[in-house]
Amino acid sequence: MSIQLVEVSKTFGAFQALKPLNLTIEKGEFVAILGPSGCGKTTLLRMLAGFEQPTAGEIRMNRTTVTKPGFSLPPEKRRIGMVFQAFALWPHMNVTEHIRFPIRHHKETPSYIREREQERIASVLQMVGLEQHGTRMPHELSGGQKQRVAIARAIAAEPSLLLMDEPLSSLDAMLRMDMRREIQAIHRQTGTAIVYVTHDQGEALAMADRIVVMKDGRIEQIGTPQDIYLRPETEFVAKFVSKANLIRGRWNRDSFVPIGTDGTVQWQGGRVADHFKSCGMYPVRPDQFKLGTPEQAGISGEVTNVQFQGKEFHYHVRSEDGQWEISSPLPFQLHDKVSLHLPAEEQL
């Protein structure tokens, strides 16, 4: 299923939750909607699901309009599956019954699935690794198993679109990593388009084909994970996704001279977005900077905080122009004088 959002906006009273936006999701694509709380990503997901109507604009699925002001095709007629943050399992149903429910009750379930119900249930149980747990009740399952049941229920009727609303946020860190792999595997096996809402940059970067970064109800940038991380187009994307340091200085075409240097330090930036050039900034991720001794040419600074992280240290370094975050394998002490360098291979 391909999806098009055309000039879609949403207002709640005097509050505009979504500014007019345009977005196309291709058949079988995994798209992550990434942004902080209140940016409009869940509102967007609810409109795709049919739980909300847009104030303006329209949403098309396979070139058919499913929602616009005054009209909305009911959720049960959209052939979608949805996975919620809080699992939303029914306490009186076992695992098999959860999977059977959409097969029997969703109006858009294909006839070939209805006719082979037991075969489909067995296939889905195997897909999510719960083939030995079909008779268990929700209270007998771990958090990760409950999330697998929620995913299995969502994909049982073979939806054309799977909507996921921060499905891993209630799980612990190690379990989230495991579930990322599970979701990726399910996406590869089913070929279903996925729209995945999250505020976790790591989840979006690890799983999505494309990322839509949102802020204050509007789209800041759309691109592949590599584009979003390596080539941010706005200050917000640079800070929110890449955790970049925004170094101030002056641009001369594609060459940048940072503040706090004698003018001999120049960084190349042919692929730096025009926005940063117009603002006199250069985005540098914490892992791109290299720390050196004070006598080396670079941005002079002082270490103001040190955190040991196993294979590397996380530093805060204060310079003439501000405080920067640096990741480095080299050991420095609190209050050490250092210089910051951007190696040629790290320059954009």
Rank of each mutant, 00 (worst) to 15 (best):
H98P: 05
I99V: 15
I99W: 01
R100F: 07
F101G: 03
I103P: 02
R104H: 10
H105S: 11
H105A: 08
H106P: 00
H106S: 09
H106C: 12
K107C: 05
E108D: 11
E108K: 14
E108I: 08
T109C: 15
T109D: 13
T109N: 15
T109I: 03
T109M: 11
P110C: 10
P110T: 13
S111F: 01
S111N: 14
S111V: 10
S111T: 15
S111A: 15
Y112F: 13
Y112V: 13
I113N: 12
I113Y: 03
R114Q: 13
R114A: 08
E115I: 02
E115A: 14
R116E: 12
Q118V: 07
Q118F: 00
E119A: 14
I121W: 02
A122K: 15
A122R: 10
V124R: 02
L125M: 10
L125T: 03
L125R: 04
Q126K: 12
Q126H: 10
Q126W: 00
M127Y: 07
V128K: 00
G129N: 10
G129K: 05
G129F: 06
G129H: 06
L130V: 01
L130R: 09
E131L: 11
E131P: 06
E131G: 09
E131R: 08
Q132A: 14
Q132G: 04
Q132F: 07
G134S: 15
T135M: 04
T135R: 08
R136H: 11
R136V: 01
M137L: 14
P138K: 06
P138F: 01
H139S: 07
H139F: 12
S142M: 07
S142H: 10
G144M: 08
G144R: 09
G144Q: 10
Q145E: 13
K146W: 13
K146L: 12
K146V: 06
K146D: 10
R148L: 09
R148D: 11
R148E: 07
V149K: 03
A150K: 03
I151C: 08
I151D: 10
A152D: 07
R153N: 07
R153V: 00
A156G: 11
A156L: 01
A156N: 11
A157L: 03
A157M: 03
P159Y: 00
P159H: 02
S160E: 15
L161W: 07
L161M: 09
L161F: 01
L162I: 12
L162C: 09
L163S: 08
L163T: 07
L163V: 02
L163N: 14
D165I: 06
D165P: 05
D165Q: 04
E166W: 01
E166Y: 01
E166H: 01
P167M: 12
L168T: 00
S169E: 05
S170W: 00
L171T: 06
L171A: 10
L171V: 03
D172M: 06
A173E: 13
A173G: 06
M174V: 15
L175R: 02
L175P: 03
L175A: 03
R176G: 00
R176C: 05
